[in-house]
Nucleic acid binder design. Structure first.
Lengths: 194, 194
DNA sequence: CTGATCCAATTGAACGTTCATTCGGTTGGC
DNA sequence: GCCAACCGAATGAACGTTCAATTGGATCAG
């Protein structure tokens, strides 16, 4: 039973990874189910056993990525760092995660700037990540580390700089080493700190 | 002759606008040539008279958008504002432009996070916008208004905050009025100013 | 242990649809 | 009469999805 579940999880995982890989280089557009299946080493029918449609596969993959992102950002070991250090850590964690897994950044961006985004905005299913991020920033305001700006402004500044930095690194415009990342996170930290 | 050119320009323009409209709500994926033609009020064959393929249409549209963006950002009337004011103006101009024309933001984002981006990165065809933006920021460094950070870091911070703010406004998460925009541009300005 | 039964997991050929593109024909200004 | 602009039915390829058939592990009666 356990073995079966693991096999099923493995297959789902393989389908997810193949989808990420293909979507990054070919777009949603150029990633047919037939190629996803071939790349994942399963039959087309198997994908439809786990996901009722291509749309559902992409939405499930989106949820899966969201969880991975949240896990990569907030590490228990860093929970009790002084707030400014923790801010730098969380920002850097996310940039590093995106740099390590460019296909996830690409997928998330394509997803958000596509009609699928409506599915997510419409329902309340992105509450989890929003809350974790919002909580973190609100905590900073509450403890007087951050100016009392609207949470949306803070979130936009945070996420905007993260994705812009990661994209620039990935497309080869600029190598964001440790120094560059510290410089960049300093820009936003200097801008929002009390 | 002049009339003919105008008519041709009108048709190209109609095709561009229809493509933008459709791509925003349906994605590249769900924007068939047949629907673009119908929405633009031309025959499919007419599109192929102006563009040799769908790919070429999308790349031409990308270039067209890039020019519009550059024009919206840098207004001659603001050229001689004190640098800090001009910085705020340029940042705000771009956010406002994207908010007014969400289909252009959506198209650019989809374009950049799709395989088409490689076409653009590969050739040197985005030199113009890069230069205008780079010049502006380098000018700020040269005149001691901005910290001497790498131009890529500055550009990433600038563009990242712009797109994040515009996206948040467009998808209804938060209404970026004049006050909110000033608060947000202050974050990055405080972070990079000398 | 044996063999009967069951069903989730898996397969890929087949189906109908939709797409990008083509091309032979029409129009209208010069 | 010429040619660029324009048209849209026709074409063939590619796509998402279906489904009848197969496998193999789990369950259990005898």
């Amino acid at each position: 039973m356990n073995v079966q579940l693991d096999q099923a999880a493995d297959k789902k995982c393989a389908i997810f990874e193949s989808t990420l890989k293909l979507v990054r280089v070919r777009g949603f557009h150029g990633s047919p189910m037939s190629q996803i299946a071939q790349d994942a080493g399963v039959a087309i029918g198997t994908i439809y056993h786990y996901f009722s449609s291509k749309d559902e596969l992409l939405i499930a993959l989106f949820d899966n990525c969201k969880q991975k992102i949240a896990k990569a950002m907030f590490k228990p070991a860093e929970d009790h760092l002084p707030y400014p250090d923790r801010f730098v850590a969380v920002w850097t964690n996310l940039v590093c995660f995106y740099i390590e897994r460019p296909e996830i950044l690409s997928f998330m961006e394509q997803f958000f700037s596509s009609p699928y985004a409506a599915v997510v905005y419409g329902s309340g299913c992105n509450i989890q990540m929003k809350n974790e991020m919002s909580n973190f920033l609100e905590q900073g305001i509450g403890k007087n580390h951050i100016k009392p700006l609207d949470i949306n402004i803070l979130t936009a500044a945070f996420m905007g700089t993260v994705t812009a930095a990661a994209k620039r690194h990935i497309n080869g415009h600029y190598a964001f080493n440790e120094t560059a990342m510290r410089e960049m996170v300093s820009i936003i930290w200097d801008g929002i700190k009390r």
